[in-house]
Design a protein around this nucleic acid. Structure first.
Lengths: 271, 271
DNA sequence: CGCCGGTTTCCGTTGAACGGAAGGATTGGC
DNA sequence: GCCAATCCTTCCGTTCAACGGAAACCGGCG
């Protein structure tokens, strides 16, 4: 019997391919959908999926579809750059939210994209496309330019080189202009982007620093573009960012005569 | 050469074992620590970990230790019972938080334990041991008894049969008593547990229902046990729970003359 | 009933996973 | 400075678990 036909990657890579098949718009898939998406033989998919279900990483619903399992979520909650950071930041984000009642966001740079870790949304805030666990292009978003401004040069150059996607007429798509903006952000310590992702939304963002004083995350408040004075909330955003940095142990944010907040028990974070 | 010595589980199971090795108190591990914890040969661990890193599920820090990767966190954010639920619930939890400034929690039943999906904590709220992504025994916690009261009978009986761990002098450890409490919770539609996990904390909890009207989650507010009138916040907690149920599409929670909140775009949740 | 899409079971083949051995790289003790 | 201990990585021959085609199974539907 002529056995081998296709037989690609390592077993681990295949398992990961299965997990990767799930997306925001396809969070529940049948076996054959999975097989098609991963381009793996049906039989193999069947076996792989079986293992994942056994391990709890995948769950099978009453409808026969597979979904990402809670066990996976649970393991993920141990990701230091994910939940650890989130935990430290949340109280400050709460404060910002109570003060503004607009979207408050926390994001990091992952690869060449912005990954949103947390968002607190007012019920009546402008609608925006970012999503917790979602990604967006750095050049267009408030948190993006802040993160990019402090990213390793390789990353900066890579993004400046590549094409800059246009989201709205106001999106910055010329690399020279972006370069200038990044310099401004470094100088000012915050960024204001107006309508670069969605015309109706304006973002005020500031950097969060880790123990080595490097920028590990960024926070932002997104307000309606029409709103009165965005500059008014800059101090609040910057202060919150600094507060988070202090909790994370950033030297540059250490007690500068401000009220010392309750000491949160830090673990082995090591950003 | 006599090759095989030990050689246990399937490759998938091994990969999962590696992920499982990470815990709350050990979120960063060296290769050999992983090897020991998983009881896998060092060489094998090395290879497995390599695959996981390649897939982004694990990250390797500057210190050489491995950590759960952001990519994993990202995939996990697609878990319907995790983030989906959280997303729907968050605005209501915010409301509760603003009203009380105490701990506000969201939890589900996973296996025989309570899994905490979300927590918003006031800076000065009582200290409690639950953690987002953490587990606790159902019989002792506020959300736990609510979830248990509406759990499948098998689960109820399993827990009633097993030993009920004592956390404080007030913890309910007699199954007959627990049985009675569960009945009360079903009758009343909410639960108040006083000092059963930590003597200083009192919890007010209520059930959240899904599209099939089954209880899919529970929320609670944890206040100092010394605080004045816990009963006063019962209506708020119950109302929030009902609000979340409505967003999830629970028939029993459909518009009962209350203000209809902004329609949130539901996806393919299928609890 | 016969067709169709999806799912599961079976099983013979073989190449990818396996782990022991050995070699580097670091750290620390004396 | 040397030796010992610990951790990490590379190499490679053996073999067994992963692999996927074939075929049965299972509703739904016309």
């Amino acid at each position: 019997m002529p056995p081998r036909t296709t037989s690609p990657a390592s077993v681990g890579a295949r398992l990961i391919a299965v997990l990767d098949a799930f997306t925001e718009r396809a969070p529940a898939l049948t076996l054959s959908e999975l097989s098609r998406r991963t381009e793996l033989p049906l039989t193999s998919t069947h076996r792989l999926v079986g293992e994942l279900v056994a391990g709890g990483l995948l769950e099978r619903g009453a409808d026969g579809r597979y979904r990402i399992g809670l066990r996976l979520w649970e393991i993920a909650s141990l990701a230091p750059r994910g939940v650890g950071l989130r935990e430290s930041a949340l109280p400050f984000l709460e404060d910002l939210y109570e003060a503004t009642h607009q979207h408050v966001q926390l994001a990091v740079l992952e690869g060449r994209e912005v990954l949103y870790l947390e968002r607190i949304s007012g019920r009546d805030a402008v609608s925006i496309i970012s999503r917790v666990g979602g990604r967006l292009a750095p050049h267009a978003t408030g948190v993006g330019v802040v993160l990019l401004a402090h990213a390793p040069v390789e990353v900066q150059e890579a993004i400046l080189a590549g094409p800059l996607r246009r989201f709205t007429p106001k999106t910055v798509t010329r690399s020279s202009e972006l370069r200038r903006i990044l310099a401004d952000v470094r100088r000012d310590g915050y960024a204001i982007t107006d309508g670069t992702v969605e015309t109706v939304a304006l973002s005020v963002a500031a950097p969060v620093r880790g123990p080595a004083d490097t920028v590990v995350a960024a926070i932002s408040v997104v307000v309606p573009a029409a709103s009165a004075q965005p500059r008014e909330i800059v101090p609040a955003v910057v202060a919150a960012a600094r507060g988070i940095s202090r909790v994370l142990g950033a030297p540059s944010a250490r007690d500068l005569g401000r009220t010392v907040r309750r000491e949160t028990h830090r673990r082995d974070l090591a950003f």
